[in-house]
Amino acid sequence: MDVLSDIVAVTRTGRPRSAHVRWHAPWGQEFASVPGSAGFQVILQGSCWLLPLNGEPVQLSAGDVVFLPHGSGHTLADSPASLVTAPACGPDDREPYDAYAADSVDRSGDGGPVTVVLCGAYQLDPSRTHPLLLTLPDLIHLPAHSGRHPELRSAVQLLAAELENPRLGTDAIVPALLDTLLLYILRIWFTEQPARGETTGWAGALNDPPVTAALHAIHRDPAAPWTVAKLAAEAGLSRAPFARRFALLIGQPPLGYLTWWRMATAARLLRTSDAPLRSISAQVGYASEFAFANAFKRTHGTAPGAYRRNS
């Protein structure tokens, strides 16, 4: 898979949650901070205000998409002055947005203007949170603009239709559409960042062809015997300039990121497969099961076998 798809696949855990909610003004709904999650709000009809815990209120209109990659607490309301109900989810809930276990919910008010919101959350594994996600701001707002992001709008419309009118296959379609929605949000945000040379971090890395080429090589074949020189060749640069460029944008040296990705991949394999440790060791580039176990314990604080049992 490409880098962005890989990152989502490795980081996300459990089943994403979503709901189609209709509010009648006046209304206000708090969403508590949920560490280890990423939430989204999509305004399907009407308008409302998003009130973050820190920062200025944001007015939202139909078609707007808001992504909260760190599970930050916030409130949605028809007006900043409206009374707010108890949180829809909290740190002790088994799954974010459990208060909206139903796919479609109607919150009746006093018969005022209607706002329809598609809300949901992804569970993330804090021990495997990719550094790319850590660099994202607390709130990403993608305003609706005529003709912009048609693929994102299509995913939203399909997801809303499935939640509002569940049919045969909905249980399989909704998680796939949620993954699609998440990838579109991330793709749009990263591609709309300033051009290469004007920004650093992962936003700069994913818009930098040499560094992206090296990242694709690592993700395509993490078991390969990569060296800085071999990765530099993939990037089309000499060794020293490549190493400096990679570390500036990614925040760690090429081989440091390679080791981190191998251990994240190993953690996913341990959680999702019954493959023996020797097979997983080979898949992430370790000829010795003993060397793999030591590297895994340094990264995750526990041996591979114990990690699998606890997962």
Rank of each mutant, 00 (worst) to 15 (best):
G197A: 07
K297R: 15
A214D: 06
Y100I: 00
L139V: 15
A240E: 10
P87E: 11
T180A: 12
R22N: 01
P96M: 11
P194R: 09
D93V: 02
A86H: 06
S146V: 11
F67G: 01
G36F: 05
L118M: 01
L270V: 04
G301A: 04
L133Y: 07
P222C: 08
G90K: 09
W27F: 15
P91K: 04
A213N: 14
E164W: 04
L44I: 09
D125Y: 04
E30W: 02
Y257D: 15
R298I: 06
V211A: 07
N54P: 00
G71H: 06
S127Y: 03
A101F: 09
A264F: 02
S47C: 04
P126I: 08
A195S: 13
A176W: 04
A99F: 10
R187K: 11
K297H: 12
V34F: 12
T129M: 15
L168F: 08
L158N: 03
D125W: 07
T129A: 08
Y122C: 03
Y122P: 00
D98T: 14
Y122K: 01
A102W: 05
R17H: 11
A303G: 13
G63T: 07
F292C: 05
V116N: 00
F296L: 09
N294W: 06
L255N: 08
A235P: 04
D138M: 01
L177H: 10
R153Q: 12
E162I: 01
E198F: 09
L60Y: 07
V42Y: 07
D138Y: 03
G73Y: 03
W27R: 05
